[in-house]
Computed example of a mutant assay.
Amino acid sequence: MFSWSFLKAGELLDLDDELHRVDLINCVPGRTDEIEWMRLESVLTRRCVQFSPAEMTELFQVKRLRVRARNSVPQDFYAQTGDQLDDAARRRLFYVEQFDRLQPSKSTAQLARFIDEVYPTADFPHHKPSPGSVRRWVNGRGEPGRRWPGQMRGRYPRGPRCSREPEYAQEIFEDSFEAFLRSAR
């Protein structure tokens, strides 16, 4: 039988075209290479499902389960150019690259001088960031020499990413609304 022991907690899988991550792996007592069962958690709904290796192999064979590439990220994450970035991400990338080049101290006074020195060299319109923002970008978005444009994007997009109600609830709302409109005439 196929072995699923290569999977580690946190890895991503697609189950019925929905993204899941490996939440928990339970091995046979005394044998770390033999899995007894595995729990997957839906990234979207946080619902957990548990499978034995035989069940996972069966799902894989009928193409309901697909293993994502390790550390799978969007295609443009490692792109070397920032042409497709929004204005805020372009600004972050500019300041962290300049920080890596000049390597000033992270103190507030030194960062303020750094921002004043670098601001006029930018080839796009923007407002000056605060020293605290630059410090946060430098500390939290990559390492010197390895700062990818994909790391500079906003981490908390605004607005709803999807409807908060289940699809059947939306249909009920729509039907009720249409019935209301018909009765109001």
Rank of each mutant, 00 (worst) to 15 (best):
Asp100His: 15
Asp100Tyr: 13
Leu102Ser: 05
Gln103Ala: 04
Gln103Pro: 02
Pro104Trp: 13
Ser105Lys: 06
Ser105Asn: 05
Ser105Gln: 13
Lys106Ile: 07
Lys106Arg: 15
Ser107His: 08
Thr108His: 06
Thr108Asn: 14
Ala109Phe: 07
Gln110Pro: 02
Leu111Ser: 00
Ala112Tyr: 01
Arg113Pro: 07
Arg113Met: 15
Phe114Asn: 05
Ile115Leu: 09
Ile115Phe: 13
Ile115Val: 08
Asp116Cys: 07
Asp116Phe: 04
Glu117Ser: 08
Tyr119Ser: 00
Pro120Leu: 13
Thr121Tyr: 09
Thr121Asn: 04
Ala122Trp: 03
Ala122His: 03
Asp123Cys: 07
Phe124Tyr: 10
Pro125Ala: 01
Pro125Met: 01
Pro125Phe: 02
His127Met: 15
His127Val: 15
Lys128Gly: 02
Lys128Phe: 12
Ser130Lys: 12
Gly132Phe: 13
Ser133Trp: 04
Ser133Tyr: 01
Ser133Arg: 03
Ser133Phe: 13
Arg135Phe: 07
Arg135Ile: 01
Arg136Met: 05
Arg136Asn: 12
Arg136Val: 05
Trp137Thr: 01
Trp137Gly: 01
Val138Gln: 00
Gly140Glu: 09
Arg141Ser: 03
Arg141Ile: 08
Gly142Ile: 04
Gly142Met: 14
Gly142Asn: 09
Glu143Met: 10
Glu143Asp: 03
Glu143Tyr: 04
Pro144Ala: 09
Pro144Gly: 11
Gly145Pro: 06
Gly145Val: 06
Gly145Asp: 06
Gly145Phe: 03
Arg146Thr: 15
Arg146Val: 11
Arg146Gln: 04
Arg147Met: 14
Pro149Thr: 06
Gly150Ile: 10
Gln151Ile: 02
Met152Thr: 11
Arg153Gly: 08
Arg153Met: 07
Arg153Gln: 05
Gly154Asp: 10
Tyr156Ala: 15
Pro157Met: 06
Pro157Tyr: 13
Pro157Leu: 06
Arg158Cys: 09
Arg158Lys: 07
Gly159Cys: 07
Pro160Thr: 15
Arg161Gln: 15
Arg161His: 11
Cys162Met: 02
Ser163Tyr: 12
